[in-house]
Design a protein around this nucleic acid. Structure first.
Lengths: 230, 230
DNA sequence: GCAAAAGTGTTGTGACTACACCCATGG
DNA sequence: CCATGGGTGTAGTCACAACACTTTTGC
């Protein structure tokens, strides 16, 4: 914080947004095609420069509206987490730009716009995105995995109620390993993270069998599952 | 990221730095007296506005040199971690300023400057710091506690080799609870975080007794102690 | 020989893993 | 009557906490 706030040349401040979702048991990322240079036509994370009178989070939502073409009422439902700030001197060829990255999660029921594609995370090779967007995406992925370990953030991938198998799929898609069904269920119930909803679902286009139970998260808030180191 | 990078009014970008240390078994924070308005004379976190040609981390080190008055060779030894970016619209009365906060740790052997005091964390009441510096400090404290749980960041509070009791004091000061000595030792050795250095220390001004063994961290790097959620 | 500091051992509890088997129900 | 999607139970291993006791060595 400096006394001097006059018109010295300053870095431009921007935001970039990483939106994750699970589609068909795979982790996916919202990307949009750039409509101007540099990297015109390339797939990139939605982002905008921050205006004088808006917070970073408001700017991030504006990026989702203007760049990704998402409806405002849906954007309002998404919780955005500040990720990190990226500041390499030449990260943007147009001039010194510092970008604050945000991360959000949408459920599979989300309606996509024509301007956005949800691309499977595993099909985005390193170096394939413009600017430092691969670095931002990697940071977001690590943060996502971290938050999955000690919060109930997984709920944001699903709708209000869900089959327990769907929830397990979320964990398996993100951690890329299979989890024992019985132990998964026992643990989440024991720590009181989820509870059973009374009704059973109707058939979901499956052949036959017992209709699955529905569950929901007991708390809305992202709650820390605290662990002591020692 | 926007095509338009001309001279529209943009938020000013700044950095603020939280430096932690342990002094006499208490967590302390580096604060310096502001020499200009607003809040002239108040204790605050060191911070500067970011220049066009420097990274955020370089700006953070410059804040420690210019505002806290620390010698450059010591500043170079400190590892700085980016914490979060603070962007409330009216956080600075002089105009729209977005500040990226950094966090660092210094060992007790560090030489302080006259411009800085290391103030005990518990003696900094909420609301006592200018701007949103209490919020920044709280965020830094939470991050510190988090990192203590799954990295070997504690090493930065100590010099290269240390008595095992000193290390335990670091944990006890930060988590504010007492830890069983035997279990503490057994765990840190079992997970291979620390190892014994062959020599014993000379007396440390104590009355008598067996001279303590010295230990050191086995890895320099901050290494994640991974834990699975399920 | 006593204080300081370290080191060892024991026991109970609770968590996690793997696996095996039982239950309910719609087509 | 069987596929589907649960739901229960048990045994082994491991981690952690509490606590007690032993060892080393300088003054």
């Amino acid at each position: 914080m400096e006394s001097n706030m006059n018109n010295i040349e300053r870095p431009v401040l921007a935001v970039d947004v990483v939106i994750f979702g699970i589609i068909k048991d795979s982790l996916t990322v919202a990307l949009n095609q750039r409509d101007s240079s540099p990297f015109k036509g390339a797939l990139a994370l939605p982002g905008v420069a921050v205006r004088m009178d808006e917070t970073l989070e408001v700017a991030a939502r504006r990026a989702l509206a203007q760049k990704a073409g998402w409806p405002v009422d849906i954007i309002d439902e998404i919780m955005l987490d500040q990720l990190a700030t990226f500041d390499a001197l030449y990260r943007d060829s147009r001039g010194r730009t510092v970008s604050v990255a945000y991360m959000g999660i949408v459920p599979e029921s989300f309606i996509y716009s024509e301007k956005t594609i949800m691309k499977p995370f595993d099909e985005i090779p390193r170096g394939s995105l413009p600017f430092d967007h691969n670095l931002i995406l990697e940071t977001a992925h690590n943060r996502l995995k971290g938050k999955m370990r000690y919060t109930n953030i997984a709920r944001k991938f699903l709708s209000e109620s869900f089959r327990i198998e769907e929830l397990q799929n979320v964990y398996e898609a993100i951690f890329k390993r299979s989890i024992n069904r019985a132990n998964f269920r026992n643990k989440l119930l024991k720590i009181n993270m989820i509870e059973q909803v009374k009704v059973l679902t109707r058939a979901v286009g499956k052949k036959g069998g017992r209709p699955p139970h529905l569950y929901r998260f007991k708390r809305q808030e992202i709650e820390t599952v605290d662990r002591d180191f020692i």
